[in-house]
Amino acid sequence: MDLTGHSTDFVVDASFPEGMRRFVRLGRQRWPEMFLYGEPLPPGVPADWRLPEPENDGLSGIVTFSSGQEMEDFWEEHGYALDVEGQGPYAVFYRHHAQPLHATTVSGVHASSQENAAAVEGTGLLLSEYYAVSIVTPEDPDTDPFSRSVVNDFLASFGEPTAAPV
């Protein structure tokens, strides 16, 4: 299978595991019969769902999402692609970094108010630990409504008050 899909990348603070729990709940609202990791998500699990233990390196992981077995089969054949209903599988790849991150200048700030955005725009950033996160959607969220809705759900899971264009 060829690599397909579009990656939207983020740096997320230590709240990533809790935000992912909210993201899984939003996915379940999208697809009541949702599959995670290629398996049906049992009823009631999103409230108790926890980010799985990291992969072999102890730092990275992946969470895959699909609407059900039919989409899983479609994924095997077509990769990250839109089906006839204009939806497709998506995934979150992540890597935990347990060391500090420093950025000299923060730009392109989206915040709950213009005042909050202005207070942060142009400042430095220092995180004691962080997650590097890639959301892989079937298409570019700038041009595809389904892919945009997935990224907007991710943003909403971390408290983005109104989903901003990506």
Rank of each mutant, 00 (worst) to 15 (best):
M1K: 10
M1E: 02
D2T: 14
D2C: 11
L3V: 12
L3F: 12
L3E: 12
L3M: 11
L3H: 10
T4G: 11
G5I: 01
G5F: 02
G5D: 06
G5T: 08
G5H: 02
G5L: 01
H6V: 07
H6D: 00
H6T: 11
S7H: 12
S7Q: 14
S7L: 12
S7V: 08
S7W: 07
S7E: 14
T8F: 00
T8C: 08
D9Q: 14
F10G: 03
F10R: 02
F10A: 04
F10S: 02
F10P: 00
V11P: 01
V11H: 07
V11I: 15
V11A: 01
V11F: 03
V12Q: 08
V12L: 12
V12P: 03
D13P: 02
D13K: 03
D13L: 01
D13Q: 00
D13S: 01
D13H: 05
A14V: 14
A14E: 13
A14C: 04
A14M: 11
A14G: 13
S15E: 06
S15I: 04
F16E: 07
F16A: 01
F16S: 04
F16G: 01
F16W: 05
P17C: 11
P17G: 09
P17Q: 13
P17L: 10
E18R: 13
E18T: 12
E18I: 09
E18Y: 09
E18F: 08
M20G: 03
M20Q: 02
R21L: 09
R21H: 07
R21S: 04
R21E: 06
R21I: 02
R22M: 11
R22S: 15
R22T: 12
F23I: 00
F23N: 07
V24M: 04
R25Y: 14
R25C: 08
L26W: 12
L26E: 08
L26D: 09
L26F: 15
L26M: 14
L26A: 15
L26G: 06
L26P: 04
L26Y: 15
G27D: 06
G27I: 06
G27L: 08
G27P: 06
G27Q: 06
G27A: 12
G27F: 08
G27W: 01
R28H: 06
R28K: 10
R28C: 00
Q29D: 09
Q29H: 02
Q29M: 01
R30T: 07
R30L: 05
R30H: 07
R30M: 09
R30S: 00
W31F: 04
W31Y: 11
W31V: 09
W31K: 03
P32F: 10
P32E: 13
P32S: 13
P32K: 11
P32D: 15
E33Q: 14
E33G: 14
E33R: 13
M34Y: 00
M34S: 06
M34E: 03
M34K: 03
F35G: 07
F35K: 04
L36I: 07
